[in-house]
Design a protein around this nucleic acid. Structure first.
Lengths: 261, 261
DNA sequence: CGTACGTTTGAGGGATATCAAATGTGGTGG
DNA sequence: CCACCACATTTGATATCCCTCAAACGTACG
């Protein structure tokens, strides 16, 4: 289960690890290399279009807002944040991207990047020229389906985030954030309860729609409550079930619902 | 420009209105029927898979959360809301869908609907069986590209909404909501400044992450300020430029930004 | 015509932003 | 290696936006 995305495995027939290994010989795009039903040949075609990962460093840009859209990017190791300029200077952090995750899908429509992507720590990133990928998907139906699923999944994730920002209070938001990181790292075979944050408190707050101070206070509180151990960027989640309970909330963390017709 | 989506026309070579008319003879999916480069034959193939619009009434469900995913839906006339159950009873309104807009893209990934779609007023809705559409896109490259763009566009829209919920205050949110409706209606050839709201104040509040009372008070205030005329569900926007100014905000409507590395 | 519900308006309180300042940390240059 | 600076984080005090509670009113529908 290590380097493999849950969602991609589910609903798919079992395939040999060999197939995966070959497809990922570039460690290129675990998200894309799993479309089942690909022949060895197809897998190699997919692999061929992927540019090998080059190491990037903190602060480097994958692309900037306004750039022409050319490629998707897959995080191999490290992490990346995407953010959009809010009118007038300030920014909205749109997401943090961990190993195995795809960046740039939102730019297909306009053919221009509407957000910027910046590397948070030394990272290895693969580039997938979209034009090539698109050609390939036209001739490999299962790959096409995979692409639809990836795009659709991105929409689902945004939807979840909308729910978070629209309905959750500060406590629930931070708990959800921590659990999300935990689960995503776990999928990649890393520890779900012991990890380093590559982003600042400021960036976390921005992402969650909270002030830095609120984030800081919550970290302190969570620690006091025995939910986690915080040491600078080093995080240890001591009570995952409790965090999950927090996220669900008593459902009255904030605001109310609407009624039928 | 009437029944045609801006975004779909842009970046596309000019085509004859005839082509569009044919493709839309079902009034099926104006969002999908515009992929340029389709032969007359292709257009007919696309058209054939679309089930004709049937009239639905307020409260009818297009699908419910948990339903197996089979089709996308295109609003022909009327309006639809989508909403997801928040854990424990309450709901989060995810979106309001006006004529020409597509519903259901988020369900492709899991093959199960994660949200419900409910008709807000008597509406005509077209159904597009996704399996058929997918087959078709495999053999018509430009249609495939169109699908990618539609999915991508959905992501961009969610992203914008994230920014709204994360960074805007109540006033800015409502102004943005009104402008969004205005612009989308305008695209469909309807008045951008005079329309009826098919959703309740409650639903608007839920969607925007605000309490009903706040929405109501803001309507009152906007009216006092001469920005709009409100009579029950009937809305007249009297000062679109001023609303736009409101949306952009002085950029300090709420919260702050993060800093570089 | 009555009941239910959607909307509006008012009063008050609470969650979280904002302001301010102390402390901790990492990097730089002397 | 230390002094220094910039900045990240934490902590405290205060302000404010918006939610919550409450009630009146309007409207729709049986």
């Amino acid at each position: 289960m290590n380097a493999i995305e849950d969602g991609l495995l589910s609903q798919q027939k079992v395939i040999s690890l060999e197939t995966i290994r070959v497809a990922c010989k570039n460690c290129s795009l675990s998200s894309l290399c799993l479309p089942m039903g690909l022949s060895q040949e197809d897998v190699e075609r997919l692999d061929d279009i992927v540019k090998r990962a080059r190491p990037l460093h903190r602060g480097d840009y994958l692309f900037r807002e306004g750039d022409r859209f050319r490629s998707l990017y897959v995080v191999k190791t490290g992490s990346v944040k995407t953010f959009a300029p809010s009118p007038e200077g300030s920014e909205q952090v749109l997401g943090f991207h961990l190993p195995g995750e795809l960046i740039g899908l939102d730019a297909i429509d306009k053919d221009i990047h509407a957000c910027s992507a910046r590397v948070l720590e030394t990272s290895a990133i693969c580039e997938v020229p979209f034009a090539h990928l698109e050609e390939l998907t036209a001739s490999i139906p299962s790959l096409q389906h995979q692409m639809y699923r990836l795009l659709s999944k991105e929409i689902s994730q945004d939807t979840e985030m909308l729910l978070l920002l629209g309905k959750k209070n500060a406590e629930e938001r931070l708990a959800a954030f921590l659990l999300s990181l935990s689960q995503r790292l776990h999928k990649r075979g890393l520890s779900p309860s012991d990890f380093y944050l590559s982003m600042s408190r400021h960036e976390i707050g921005n992402y969650l729609g909270l002030a830095v101070e609120t984030v800081s206070r919550l970290f302190t509180r969570f620690q006091e409550d025995g939910l986690m151990q915080v040491d600078r960027k080093h995080i240890q989640l001591l009570n995952l079930p409790a965090l999950e309970t927090l996220v669900v909330g008593s459902d009255q963390g904030r605001r109310q619902q609407q009624q039928p017709g």
